[in-house]
Amino acid sequence: MAQFKEGLLYSESHEYIRVEGEFGYIGISDYAQHALGNVVYVDMPDVDDEVTAGEEFGAVESVKAASDLISPVSGTVVEVNEALENEPELLNKDAFANWIIKVQLSDSSELDNLMDAKAYEAFCENA
């Protein structure tokens, strides 16, 4: 069963963001990780790249599927999780502990468009 972790915000394209001050850690939800199966590759942006809310910033690949990563917020990439380069399976082990990029938010009002854990769980149940 997929976990729906409290305290995070979720998008309809199954990314989560954990907000800490002006920064946000973006990853894929446990639900998304289950749906993808064994992750074999994570395509990540470079540090200093700009990301835009609703636009793609990378992709996650499993053996039989590939899914674009859609940024839930706009901002600048300040860090990428390099551990995923060699161990993409970390996303299967713990999707919430293994964020993909850290972003400096440019417009925190965008967070209002995202769902909390409860709303996201309901969203997934109806999917």
Binding site: K64, A65, A66
Partner: peptide, 13 residues
């Protein structure tokens, strides 16, 4: 291998 790049999975992408 690396079939996730291909048309039958990525479709219009």
């Amino acid at each position: 291998t690396l079939q996730a790049r291909e048309q039958h999975i990525r479709r219009q992408k």
